[in-house]
């Protein structure tokens, strides 16, 4: 499970264009999928980067209970350009366990095969489409055997057709029991996979609600307007 307690990170406007977060607290149960929604600059990416260990909080704490492994995929293309797909998947695990190189490569090939990406094993990132890059990045994060996945707008730079293939993969992983925190702009996708929704505004949690209630019985006019706007803008 994920337990976040009064997490705060502040930026001076001159230091960073991202917005900070202010005293955020919430809990995510094991196997739960939580969508994080909110306008630009509300601190969604900052929250995920803090939990992924990429930034250090000013105050507050977070813990993952017994779930030690955390996988993180960002909205940027992060596949290492000098390595092919298979090498991208295997580099980190092999460095950790050099004596299991053959097993790790076999495991990576099986994973690629399972998600129909095995034909790209020897392909370099610049030869892949945006959707393929993001799917490979997701599979790469699975190679470290995480129990928790943090996904930060992983489809934000993709067109609708490519977006669908990535979201289908996320949906499959959600069904497999991964605990997930998903920042997304795709309302129909969030509806279909979420158990809970966190709505952030200016670095704070405006609403933390069961997903069915959030989407079906939303009384907050600001949230209603936001979801309507982005549904129109992003959903395929």
């Amino acid at each position: 499970m994920i337990k976040v307690n009064n997490l705060t990170k502040k930026y001076s406007n001159f230091e960073n264009s991202e917005e900070g977060i202010n005293n955020i607290s919430f809990e995510v149960e094991k196997g739960e999928v939580v969508s994080i929604l909110g306008p630009s600059g509300s601190g969604k990416s900052t929250l995920l980067k803090l939990l992924a260990g990429l930034k250090e909080q000013d105050s507050g704490t977070y813990s993952f209970g017994d779930d030690v492994g955390v996988g993180y995929v960002s909205q940027e293309y992060t596949l290492w350009p000098h390595l092919n797909v298979l090498e991208n998947l295997t580099l980190a695990p092999i460095l950790k366990n050099p004596s299991y190189k053959t097993e790790i490569e076999k495991e990576a090939s099986e994973l690629l095969n399972r998600f129909d990406l095995d034909k790209y094993s020897n392909t370099y990132p610049h030869e892949l489409s945006g959707g393929q890059k993001q799917r490979v990045a997701l599979l790469r994060s699975l190679m470290t055997k995480p129990k928790i996945l943090l996904l930060d707008e992983i489809t934000s730079s993709l067109d609708p057709e490519l977006t669908k293939s990535v979201l289908d993969l996320v949906r499959t992983l959600a069904n497999e029991g991964y605990t997930m925190l998903v920042v997304t702009h795709h309302i129909s996708f969030a509806k279909s996979i979420s158990d809970k929704v966190l709505f952030l505004k200016k670095g704070s949690v405006l609403v933390s609600q069961d997903a069915n209630d959030f989407f079906a019985n939303q009384n907050n006019l600001e949230i209603q307007s936001f979801t309507k706007d982005i549904e129109h803008k992003y959903d395929y």
Partner: peptide, 14 residues
């Protein structure tokens, strides 16, 4: 050099 490459390495435990 994109920072994202380094961040990917960190999150993968390198």
């Amino acid at each position: 050099l994109p920072v994202a490459y380094r961040e990917a390495g960190i999150t993968l435990g390198m």
